[in-house]
Design a protein around this nucleic acid. Structure first.
Length: 270
DNA sequence: CAAGGTGTTGTCCA
DNA sequence: ATGGACAACACCTT
C-alpha cells in the first residue's frame, strides 16, 4: 500500500530517470483505469516529451509537453524501468521510450492512469481536490485545517481532500506518536494535542521517506525500501509491547478499517 | 480449497 | 458536514 513516502520517492526517481525523454509508444492493457477512451488516451500522450515528475499525496504527476499523465497506484503496485524486452509478467500500462527502455506500471483494478490537457489540470477532479502534502503541513497549518471540524481524527487524516498522503499503514504510528486514540473527535482536541498530531505526521512519515519507502514496496529499479518492520512503532504489532510503556498493543476495529493502538498511551474517548 | 481480511477511492444513503 | 455501507479485484492467511 503505497503512501506519501513511497509515492514521493517514486516521483523523484522518475524525475531523475525520465525528464527529457520522449514517450514513443503506449501500451494499455487495462483500459478501465483510464479516464478517456483508450485510443484517445494513447494519441494524447504518444510523442510527448517528459518535462517534470512530482506528486501530491498518493498521486504522481507526469508533466509532458502534450499534457499530464496522472497516476494513482490504488492499493499497491509497481512502477519499474526496464529494458522493453524484459517486461515483468504483470503490467497494465507500458510507456516505451526511444532508447529501448520501458516504464512498466502495474496496479490493482482501482489504480488510475488519467490524462489532462496542458492547461486543464485544474479540471481533473480527483487531483484538484487534494489537500496539501502531509509533510508540508506546519503546526499552524494543521490548527487552521482542524478548526471548526467535528469528525474523528482517523477519518480526518485519511481524507485526502484535507491532508494528502496518509493511508491506513502509517496512520497507526502517527496517532501513537500524537498520543491520540483514532476515535477521538477533532472538536475535543486541545491546542497541545493538535501540535502533537502535527509532530506525529512528521515523525510518522519522514523516516520512511528518507529511507526510500517501506520494505514491502520497490523502487523503479526493483530495489526494496529501507524502512523496515523494526522502524515501525506499533503498527501491525498486535500482542507486542508498547515501546513507551510496555502495555500490550491492541488491534481494534475503527469503522471499516482496523487500527493498532496502545490502550494506555492512546486512551479511548468518552 | 473455500472463506475472510486488506487496501484506495468515489458514490450513494442516512 | 459526517460517517457508514458498498463496489471494484488480487493476493495472502486461515
Amino acid at each position: 500500500m503505497p503512501e506519501l513516502p513511497e509515492i514521493t520517492c517514486r516521483a523523484k526517481e522518475m524525475k531523475g530517470a525520465l525528464v527529457g525523454r520522449t514517450i514513443a509508444t503506449i501500451d494499455v492493457i487495462q483500459p478501465k483505469s483510464l479516464n478517456l477512451p483508450k485510443k484517445k488516451f494513447v494519441t494524447s500522450l504518444t510523442g510527448s516529451e517528459i518535462l517534470d515528475v512530482s506528486n501530491r499525496g498518493k498521486w504522481i504527476f507526469v508533466e509532458t509537453d502534450k499534457g499530464w499523465l496522472l497516476l494513482n497506484l490504488g492499493m499497491g503496485g509497481e512502477i519499474l524501468l526496464v529494458p522493453c524486452d524484459e517486461l515483468p509478467e504483470k503490467h497494465r500500462l507500458v510507456l516505451g521510450f526511444d532508447d529501448g527502455k520501458c516504464l512498466s506500471i502495474n496496479f490493482w483494478w482501482f489504480g488510475y492512469a488519467h490524462y489532462a490537457p496542458p492547461d486543464r489540470l485544474d479540471e481533473h477532479k480527483m487531483t484538484a481536490k487534494l489537500g496539501p502534502n502531509a509533510l508540508d503541513i506546519s503546526t499552524q497549518d494543521l490548527r487552521e485545517i482542524v478548526q471548526g471540524r467535528r469528525g474523528r481524527v482517523k477519518s480526518f487524516l485519511l481524507d485526502q481532500s484535507k491532508i494528502a498522503g496518509i493511508g491506513n499503514a502509517y496512520i497507526h504510528d502517527i496517532l501513537f506518536i500524537a498520543g491520540l486514540h483514532p476515535l477521538r473527535t477533532l472538536n475535543t482536541l486541545s491546542e497541545g494535542e493538535v501540535a502533537r498530531l502535527a509532530e506525529g505526521i512528521q515523525r510518522g512519515l519522514a523516516p520512511s521517506l528518507e529511507k526510500g519507502g517501506a520494505f514491502y514496496e520497490v523502487d523503479i529499479y526493483g530495489e526494496r525500501g529501507g524502512f523496515v518492520m523494526e522502524d515501525i512503532l506499533i503498527g501491525y504489532r498486535e500482542g507486542k509491547n508498547c515501546p513507551n510503556c510496555g502495555t500490550t498493543i491492541e488491534k481494534i476495529k475503527t469503522g471499516t478499517t482496523s487500527s493498532f493502538i496502545c490502550p494506555s498511551c492512546q486512551p479511548a474517548p468518552g
